[in-house]
């Protein structure tokens, strides 16, 4: 078991003929992911890394029986790509694209309401279930199959944490990058809920950062509903307020955006708080 993606995942790559889309398709195939189709309007009939390309999501899903899509479409067209995927019959849409206007995402979330389609991202590194599926851009060699679930707002910092876990001999069930934008689909709480229900997952790591109050909401949820041990790591204790720190969502503004408040909330919910990726691995080792 695992969450969201596994060996039953049948993936469509939206934007497969682009530079990043084709490069990442090769890496996903190498990481034993079943990439069954690609979509780029006007490119039907072509092949990328042996994967057939279709004009529309509907054709790709109908012809190849896909159940998941990943989006590498430029920001101006990404919202449209999400909606096209949501209407095509796939249950999970992962959007890697960074730089989608917030207003477009407000409209997307309005349209997704009630459809039952799950969105991960945007501006996220995707999802990896080691040895089964890599739906995203995470470096596959750092992963080891195992029983720790990882959920994170970050990219490279997630890789650091996974790498530290693997070097300590702690494998991962699934690693979910939920994205660094202010508006995202799948939240910490959604991922924690899935990990709590997943029999393979024995413990979880939550990696957060400044901006918004998602970590505090996760803390409240953990207190009520999570029985498995959680290690939390929040970065940005030294970040100045009012400045966007790389990720569009990483800005201390309004109530509750500081790392200190987030760390306190997590500690108050019984989460073991770590201070570095190595510390995450060390504390996890003690817990399991």
């Amino acid at each position: 078991m695992s969450i969201l993606v596994d060996k039953h995942t049948r993936l469509v790559v939206q934007g497969i003929t682009g530079h990043v889309g084709s490069f990442e398709t090769r890496l996903m195939l190498q990481a034993v992911t079943s990439v069954v189709a690609g979509v780029t309007p006007g490119r039907a009939g072509q092949n990328v890394e042996g994967v057939p390309v279709f004009d529309t999501m509907q054709e790709a899903v109908d012809t190849r029986g896909a159940n998941t899509s990943i989006i590498f479409v430029p920001p101006a067209h990404a919202a449209g790509a999400i909606l096209e995927a949501a209407g095509s019959g796939v249950g999970l849409v992962v959007c890697v694209t960074e730089g989608i206007p917030v207003k477009d995402m407000v409209q997307v979330f309005g349209s997704l309401e009630g459809t039952g389609v799950r969105l991960v991202g945007p501006n996220c590194p995707g999802i990896t279930t080691p040895g089964q599926a890599r739906v995203g851009i995470m470096p596959d060699p750092i992963f080891v199959p195992g029983s720790v679930g990882v959920v994170s707002r970050s990219g490279t910092l997630t890789y650091e944490v996974v790498d530290a876990l693997s070097r300590q001999g702690i494998g991962q069930s699934t690693c979910v990058g939920i994205g660094g934008d202010p508006l995202i689909g799948t939240t910490f709480i959604d991922a924690l809920e899935l990990f709590e229900q997943d029999p393979q997952t024995r413990a979880m790591v939550l990696v957060g950062e400044i901006g918004g109050t998602a970590e505090q909401e996760a803390a409240e949820y953990i207190k009520e509903y999570v029985s498995k041990p959680v290690v939390g790591y929040v970065v940005g204790i030294s970040a100045p307020p009012g400045k966007t720190m790389g990720h569009a969502g990483a800005i201390i503004s309004g109530g509750g955006g500081t790392a200190k408040e987030k760390i306190e909330a997590l500690a108050g919910a019984g989460v073991t708080v770590a201070e570095s990726p190595e510390d995450v691995a060390g504390k996890m080792k003690e817990l399991i």
Partner: peptide, 17 residues
């Protein structure tokens, strides 16, 4: 100089600590 916003924040924190 760091690649990735999260790792960059983590680096600042470790310098501070």
């Amino acid at each position: 100089i760091v690649n990735g916003a999260g790792l960059a924040l983590a680096t600042l924190d470790m310098i501070t600590r």
